[in-house]
Each structure stands twice: as structure tokens, then as C-alpha cells.
Design a protein around this nucleic acid. Structure first.
Lengths: 184, 184
DNA sequence: TCGGTAAAATAACATATGTTACCGCATGGG
DNA sequence: CCCATGCGGTAACATATGTTATTTTACCGA
């Protein structure tokens, strides 16, 4: 038959994803991925029709990665809101490039923010028992306001304009939750 | 003597800035600027040592533009906070690419967020009578929290995840100001 | 009018990108 | 033990970028 496959689609995708984590999406080029895998650019175009297809796959993997990150994140807060917030802000800090890709710069045809939060299983928001007050359905409401705040802190951490230690962040999140909840 | 100058530094900078507004920073290339000015790339490199220098100039012009935008923005809110917030969020909506450049993606050696807000004259925050509670000096405090919220809404509007009409935005800003202020 | 000077055009260099044509060759079924 | 099949390497194409060398050209003072 034919020659045996030595460079798999997994090797390529994993490498591209690792590069996205480390250097950001825009540095994932055909030649750079190939070089890191240790092959020519051919195998890439054998398993992916184009770089766009590979980038799509990386994006999807980033979305899954965020889901897993949230699931594993220790839920030590007093409320599901602060847990969600802590996980989200930590993710922005620790996975700057992935956060940018998913929640800031996006990508043509990117998933919506709430779609990314819920994922395939609806885990994040659902598990947080926030189903009743899902953001999209209560504009100006509690979840929307809290979410705007959480997203704001995460984005500011990207540019270095927010850098409170986790303890302080947790306090602040629970503080503003109180503020919003008691207001109504 | 010599030939008369027909392509001025102003023409080049204005064009590059207009292109940044319309298409974003990353589309400002030497050839595209030249084409829009109606000349070759030579005049650009006569007045700027490199594209990096031109990009710096565009960035500075964007910072000034934001200052002017804020100064002119109608202050119809009940508090200086809501005025600042409305202006900032409107800017993000109407000048998506400039907002990204200044407050999201930044640029090597970009100005800090509060530096951008204050500008050369310290106008934005100062005029808003917020001097006493400037963000950097009250981490976790009132201004910081409000600012995180405002920045969050602005960033979400970039990705289409926030799209309340101005009226609602204003209400929400005044609402959360109440929440934060009464909490303490 | 004429020539030198500087501005602007032309065209190239060097690099980086996605993508494709081509070819060597390993491999496993016959 | 062959050899067709398809994997992967080499090299090129086409394009886009910043930048620079060279040439043309317009201006103004002499």
C-alpha cells in the first residue's frame, strides 16, 4: 500500500493550539507550525484543506479548553457569581491569548459570549444555577450587570490595568454582588 | 532650488488616521496609505523614518481624538460617573477601531488607561470631579469598581454582546452608581 | 535660461505569508 | 520480491509587507 502516516492531525492541532496559548493566534502560521512539529508544511495541508480550517479547529479547541478550565476551577466563593467571576478573570490572566481569541478579538463567525460560557453542555451558567436569570433575557438585570463587571475586570487585566490579587478580587466580586442584589 | 513639496506630513498622518478609524490599525500599510493619498510610498518615508513612527503618530492622534470626543460629549447624566461612562461606551461603539487601539489591544509602550483618560490636561477624570477618588489610588474602591463596569460594557459592545440603547445604558450606570455608593 | 537640489516615482530587495506542483520513497498487499 | 499508493520533503508560485537604491522631474535662484 502506501507510506505510513507519521504526522497526525492531532500533532498538528495540538501544536497549533499550544502556539496559540503561548504566542497568540496571529503567530500560528503554516511554516511555524510545521517547524515546531518537525516537518514540512505538506502534512498540514493534507489533513486541513486550508489554514482557515486549522484556525477554526484551534478556536474550537480553545472553547473546549475554557470549558474544562471552568469545570476544574476551585469553587471557593460564597456565591456562584463569584466562582464564575474568579474563574473567568483567572482565565484571562493565565491564558491571555486564549481569552483574547475567545472573548475579545473573536474571529469571523465567532461564538457569542453566552454560547461560549454555556458550552455544549450549558455547564458554566447552568451549573452556577443562574439559569433563571440568564443574561440575554434580563437586559439591565442582575446577571447582565454582574457579567459586565466580571468581563470588565478580565479585559482590564489583559492590558495590565487591573492586577488585584485573587483574594481582593473575590472580595470585590462578593461585594458588588451584594450591592446589585440589595438594590433592585 | 528644489522641487516643491506636494505631499505633506499632515496629508499622510490624516489619511493614516482616517484609515485606522475605518479599517483598523492593522490595515494601515505603507502602500495602502500611499495609494489613498495618491502618491508612491516615497513621501511617507521622507517624513517618517519608518512605519513604526507613523503608527506612533496615529496612536497619539487617536489619544487626542478621544480627549476631544469626551470634551464635546453632551453631559446629560445625573453624575459625572454616568457622563464619563456614557462617553466612553459611546466611543467604543462609534469608534470601534480607535477604542481597540487605545483601550484593548494597545500597542508596545502604550499609554496606561488612566493616562489616556486624563490626557495631557487631566481633563476627563479631573473635570468629572473625580480627582479625590482616582482609580489607581483606591483599589477595590468606588471609582475602580465603576470604572471596571464601564470598561466592561464598552468591551462587550465591541463583540456585539452588549447593545442596550443609550437611555438604558444611562439608567444602568446611574443604577450601579447608586448600588456602589450606598454600599460602601 | 540653465543647472543644481530636493521631491516624488519606479523598481527593486528582503522577508513573510498561504498554497500548490512535483518528486522521492517507504510501505504493505499481491 | 515487486510496485502502486499515498505520505512528506523540496521548491516554487503568488501575494503582501517594510524599506531602499535609482531615476525622473519640477522648482527656484543664479
Amino acid at each position: 500500500m502506501a507510506r505510513k502516516e507519521t504526522i497526525t492531525i492531532q500533532m498538528i492541532l495540538d501544536t497549533a493550539f499550544a502556539m496559540t496559548r503561548e504566542e497568540g493566534f496571529s503567530n500560528v502560521t503554516a511554516r511555524r507550525v510545521a517547524s515546531r512539529v518537525g516537518c514540512s508544511t505538506q502534512p498540514i495541508f493534507r489533513v486541513y484543506k486550508s489554514m482557515d480550517e486549522l484556525w477554526d479547529a484551534v478556536y474550537d479547541q480553545a472553547a473546549d479548553f475554557f470549558q474544562d478550565y471552568y469545570k476544574v476551577y476551585p469553587k471557593t466563593g460564597k456565591t456562584p457569581f463569584s466562582n464564575l467571576g474568579m474563574a473567568y478573570i483567572s482565565f484571562a490572566r493565565e491564558e491571555k491569548h486564549l481569552f483574547e481569541l475567545l472573548f475579545v478579538n473573536g474571529r469571523a463567525g465567532r461564538k457569542g459570549m453566552y454560547e461560549l460560557l454555556n458550552g455544549n453542555s450549558g455547564s458554566v451558567v447552568y451549573e452556577a444555577n443562574l439559569a433563571r436569570i440568564q443574561g440575554c433575557s434580563d437586559p439591565g438585570g442582575l446577571f447582565t450587570k454582574i457579567w459586565i463587571f466580571i468581563h470588565g475586570a478580565a479585559c482590564m487585566s489583559l492590558t495590565g490595568d487591573y492586577d488585584l490579587p485573587d483574594i481582593e478580587t473575590k472580595k470585590m466580586l462578593e461585594n458588588i454582588y451584594q450591592s446589585f442584589a440589595e438594590m433592585k
